[in-house]
Amino acid sequence: MKKNRLHILLFTLLLSFSGLLQAESIKIRMGTEGAYPPFNLIDKEGKLGGFDVEIGKALCEAMQADCEWVTSGWDGIIPALLAKKFDTIIASMSITEERKKQVAFTDKYYTTPVRFARPKGMPIEITDEGLKDKIVGVQSSTVAENFLRGRFGEIVEVKAYGTQDEANLDMLSGRVDLLLADSFVLGEFLNSKDGQSIEFVGPAFTDKKYLGDGIGIAVRKEDSALLEKLNAAIKQIREDGTYARINAKYFDFDVFGE
């Protein structure tokens, strides 16, 4: 462990020297949401953290870039990228055809299915019949919403919330019968103190039509140089074990997918 730290220290020193020598290390403003635990969140001390943020920092290190973090509300995150409030979106954004019309995506840096959750013991089955006229809470502008409207839109009543926390609150107060969300995010809620009365139900959906090709980093279409750098950096952290180290902090399986 100690040796490892020394390595990191040397590496950082080396990096800072190389930064001095290069004189112009690239500056990147990383955009994220900060309200999507465990992927991106603002902790009790007001610091930005989570899987996305740690991966982002590792990528910056791999690219030898000087990164600054900016947070944005989810609904306006693509417009903010286009308006150059920041240069990347690393906020667990699924790669979808619709979004590709607006922004360019790197290769995926992880994949994630969506799942339903219900109050413990509530007899709701995840079938077309079982879901009939049920109220399902979902975060708006997410793939979970697209999937829900696309696959079950005719059957259930969709209630869309600005944040996942609000949907969770309404689950607890009984305004919705079911939640549908990213299985990791939902898992986090189910493991929390408040989420004890809620349980997963039904299969994990990975429908490529709605859920896209995994989770990528979005950049403006014209920033192709940055895109290539990010792709190379993703490859690098996968190979040098940095990814595995961060992965192990959050999940007990390889979240990258195959």
Partner: peptide
């Protein structure tokens, strides 16, 4: 619209989340 009602602003938000035509 922040408490899930689909008023003019709520609907606009929903359309934008689908079309990105902000």
């Amino acid at each position: 619209s922040v408490i899930t009602l689909l008023d003019l602003t709520g609907i606009a938000g929903r359309i934008i989340s689908k079309t990105f035509a902000v």
